[in-house]
Simulated scan of single mutants.
Amino acid sequence: MADQPGSTPRLRSLDALRGFDMLWITGLADLFLQLAKVTQFPRLEAFAVQLEHVEWDGLRVYDLIFPLFMFLSGVAVPYALGKKRERGDSRGALLAGVWKRVLILVLLGIVYNGGLQLKFESQRYASVLGQIGVAYGIAASIFLITSTWRARAIWCGGILVTIAGLQLLFPVPGHGAGVLTPDGIVNAWLDRLLLPGRLHGGVFDPEGILCAFSAAALTLGGVLTGEHVKDSGPPSHMTAARLLVAGTCLLFAGWLCWKFGYPPIKSAWTTTFNLLAGGIALWLFTAFHLFIDFRPQSKWSFPLEVIGMNSLTIYLTERVLSFPEISEFFFGGIAQWCGKWQEVVLIVGILVIEWLLLYFLWKKRAFLRV
Rank of each mutant, 00 (worst) to 15 (best):
I145T: 09
S147W: 14
L195G: 06
F213W: 12
Q131G: 15
W149E: 10
T162D: 07
V223F: 10
A240D: 15
P234C: 09
G226T: 01
P235Q: 08
L190Y: 13
H175Q: 11
A188I: 00
P206C: 02
A246C: 11
G184N: 06
P234R: 13
G247A: 12
I185K: 09
R152Q: 15
V172R: 04
W189T: 03
L224N: 01
V229D: 11
T181G: 12
D191Y: 06
T248Q: 12
V161A: 13
L190S: 04
L190G: 06
E207K: 04
L250R: 03
T146D: 00
H228R: 14
N187A: 04
T148Q: 14
A216W: 01
P182H: 07
L250A: 08
Y125Q: 04
A139V: 08
F252K: 13
T225S: 01
H200T: 06
V128N: 10
L129F: 09
A215G: 11
F170C: 13
L224R: 04
F213D: 01
D191F: 06
S127F: 01
L199T: 00
Q131C: 15
L180Y: 09
D183H: 05
S232I: 06
L144C: 05
G158L: 13
G130E: 03
P182E: 08
V172S: 07
L218A: 06
S147Y: 13
V245M: 12
S141F: 04
A253E: 04
T219W: 01
W155G: 00
D191W: 05
F143M: 11
Q167I: 02
L144Y: 07
R150V: 14
W149I: 09
T148S: 15
I138S: 03
H200F: 12
E207W: 02
S232F: 07
A217Y: 01
R198Y: 12
L168G: 09
E207C: 06
